[in-house]
Amino acid sequence: MTTTSPLAATAETTADPPTRLSRRDATPRRGRRHHLAVAGFLAPFLTVFAAFYLVPIGYAIYQSFLKVERDGTFGPARQVFAGLDQYATVVRSNDFWDSFVNVSQFFVLSIPLQLGFALVFALVLDSPFLRGASFFRLAFFAPYAVPGVIAALMWGFMYSPQLSPFPAVAERLDLLGPTWVMFAMVNVVNWVYTGYNMLILYSALQAVPAEVIEAATMDGAGQLRIAWSIKIPHILPALVLTGIFSIIGTLQLFNEPQVFRGISSAVSSKFSPNMVVYATSNVPDYHLAAAFSVVLALLTCVLSFLFLKLAQRRAFQ
């Protein structure tokens, strides 16, 4: 999973029409004489963005319309235009769609638990009854400092009966076997990201006006009632945001299953869509790999967008 904070913008600008930004920029500089300055400010970022984002994407799309052809079995390879051939292969690829089934299961097992706990932790942190809130905030966030690969290695050791701190559990349940390995990976991802999501939600809670909470307290509302009726509705946009991060992160799952593949025979080299792309490029079949990644990018866009629309209809109307 990756850090995908920029989505904040998508969530925000769509949830809250552009008026906000433009009102804040009420009196920006106008006039021709600043065009040079604007170009100067934008040029460095746009150069690297074009070189390392736009050009590779364009190149991937271009590659996906080609295929390798040989004269005879041992003839020299030539790249020829293939139209939609690669995409037809993508549509027929069981590996690719199976990997979507895998990450969908992963999503269902992981995200409700992860976001649910993140929300509960954030609310408890924000409640007046907790002692030592800053310690808990740090403790829960600390795993985010552990790179996904290293977290997977570490938990992988703890799952093995020889190294586990709870050998009785690890011996009884084959945590790296086919039944449990999905839960084992879900646990790694949740361990890393729950605190991160908690912090986003907790930050959002800080923006709930104290007056509103005070008024509710005066009216005799308990902490649970305040959380349910005031705090949660107030931070819905932040919850939607964490939901979109989770969709993108799960679809892009790579590091954790890639490590687990090495320690568990129950994880295939084509577990997640990104692993299918990687395995295909190792064949090597770059053209098909390119088509896979284009389809994956499009599906990611569509799913995030659908989720956003759905959430908006539920949350903001």
Binding site: Y53, I57, A297
Partner: peptide, 9 residues
């Protein structure tokens, strides 16, 4: 740019 999967880049 955020929605682009890592392997696509």
């Amino acid at each position: 740019g955020v929605l682009v999967p890592a392997t696509a880049l």
